[in-house]
Amino acid sequence: MNVISLTVWTLENNCFAVYTALIVGFTVFTFLHKRTIEERYRNRITDKKEKLPRNGSGGKERDFPDDEGDEPYLVPAIPEDTPHVPYKPLKRADDEVLQRSRDYYQLMANRRTVRFFSPEPIPEGVLENLVKTAGTSPSGAHTEPWTYVVVQNPEMKEAIRNIVEEEEELNYAKRMSRQWVTDLKPFATKPTKPYLSEAPALLLVFRQAYSWRPDGRKRMHYYSEISVAIAAGILLAAIQYCGLVALTSTPLNCNARLRDLLSRPSNERLELLLPVGRPHKEATVPDISRKSLEEIMIKV
């Protein structure tokens, strides 16, 4: 009996034992191989992430990217020996504080999003003051993660409008849900955006995810999204205070094209596009109301 015949005879007469051995071997191999893969994956995740300690008893661990530096290169974003100076704002009486809070509320209660702009030019220096005011906003570790691009050139405004309208046609037709489009109907907003070329100025707010130190190393920006959001709120308040109006436009899927058009670097992302100016004499706004104080505030 040759080897092949012996093998066939053995398999035929011991098939149950052979198949059982194969199944057991395959199961053991799969289990061990799975554990090896999971262990390698966990090691890779651990190597990539640098976790901060929890803040307080209920804090959540957050992962922040390292700034590609070893400990000798870990220096603060601003000088460590920055002096702390006395803070002495003007002290106001209680009745004045109360009155000023009422006055400011009345001012901001009249703020509306406007889609119809007068072609009247904005007085010289106003836009610069608005941007300086937005620049007073707080930011994570004082990294000031914002860039404000002011556009007044008619050709550039038209180019921005063309990009936004091209993307908005796709947004309304394919990208946005039907409910989203339905919710916008009371505001009469459409893919066409004439105010982008009609307003005397466009103010584009870019968020810097990071920047660069003088030595060429990356400077991380912490909480850049909320920092820019706070700055945008201060900017809108300043626009209202000086008697102008704006439209809080968030052009969906336009970031890359507008960033390239305006020659902004890859570490910046467009968060807000604000047409700014005076309202057109025939401008209208939806007759809507805001939530009451009881709906938005809880006292504990």
Score class of each variant (00 low, 15 high):
Pro275Gln: 02
Arg115Asp: 02
Asp94Ala: 14
Thr182Trp: 11
Asn2Lys: 07
Phe16Leu: 15
Val151Cys: 01
Val97Phe: 09
Leu52Ala: 11
Lys174Gln: 13
Gly277Asn: 04
Pro275Met: 06
Val150Lys: 00
Arg290Ala: 06
Asp47Glu: 13
Pro119Leu: 08
Leu6Asn: 14
Asp103Cys: 00
Val97Glu: 05
Gly243Phe: 00
Gly58Ala: 09
Gln106Thr: 10
Lys91Ala: 14
Glu68Thr: 12
Tyr87Phe: 15
Ile122Gly: 02
Asp66Ile: 10
Arg207Ala: 06
His221Thr: 10
Pro65Asp: 06
Phe31Gly: 08
Leu98Asn: 07
Leu236Asn: 07
Tyr105Pro: 04
Leu274Glu: 03
Met156Leu: 14
Val114Gln: 03
Arg102Val: 12
Glu169Arg: 13
Gly25Cys: 03
Ile78Glu: 14
Met1Pro: 08
Leu196Lys: 01
Arg35Gly: 14
Phe187Ser: 05
Arg278Asn: 06
Pro65Tyr: 04
Pro53Met: 03
Gln152Trp: 00
Tyr195Arg: 04
Ala238Val: 03
Asn14Ile: 01
Asn153Ile: 03
Glu50Met: 12
Glu68His: 14
Ser177Trp: 07
Ile160Leu: 05
Gln240Asn: 11
Ile37Glu: 12
Trp146Pro: 01
Ile122Lys: 04
Leu130Met: 07
His84Asp: 12
Pro191Ile: 02
Val85Leu: 15
Ser137Val: 03
Glu169Pro: 04
Asp215Glu: 07
Gly243Leu: 03
Ala231Asp: 00
Thr27Gln: 03
Pro72Ala: 10
Ser197Gln: 09
Asn55Gly: 06
Ala77Thr: 15
Asp260Arg: 11
Tyr172Phe: 15
Asn253Glu: 14
Leu184His: 06
Pro83Gly: 09
Arg207Leu: 11
Leu202Val: 04
Arg115Cys: 02
Ser266Asn: 15
Tyr148Ser: 05
Pro194Leu: 04
Val205Lys: 01
Glu158Ala: 15
Pro275Asp: 05
Leu252Pro: 03
Leu6Cys: 09
Glu268Thr: 06
Met108Trp: 08
Glu225Asn: 11
Asn171Thr: 09
Gly140Val: 08
Ser118Asn: 09
Leu90Glu: 13
Pro83Leu: 04
Leu270Ser: 11
Arg175Leu: 14
Val8Asn: 03
Lys185Ser: 11
Leu244Val: 05
Ser289Glu: 12
Ala17Asp: 12
Val181Cys: 02
Ser224Ala: 15
Lys49Trp: 07
Pro83Lys: 03
Leu184Pro: 02
Gln179Asp: 14
Glu12Thr: 12
Asn14Met: 05
Leu74Ala: 08
Ala237Met: 11
Val164Ala: 08
Pro123Glu: 10
Glu50Ala: 12
Phe116Gln: 12
Val8Cys: 00
Leu262Cys: 08
Glu61His: 13
Tyr195Thr: 00
Glu169Lys: 13
Asn43Thr: 13
Leu32Ile: 13
Glu144Arg: 08
Val300His: 09
Pro194Phe: 05
Val151Arg: 00
Val85Ser: 14
Leu293Gly: 05
Arg217Cys: 06
Ile163Met: 04
Arg102Asn: 10
Tyr87Glu: 12
Trp180Leu: 11
Asn129Ile: 01
Ala283Val: 08
Leu244Glu: 02
Ser227Arg: 01
Glu80Leu: 15
Tyr210Asn: 08
Phe187Gln: 08
Lys157Asp: 06
Arg213His: 10
Leu273Gly: 00
Val126Asn: 04
Arg264Lys: 12
Val126Glu: 11
Asp260Met: 12
His280Asp: 14
Leu11Arg: 01
Pro251Ser: 06
Gly25Ala: 05
Arg207Thr: 02
Gly59Thr: 01
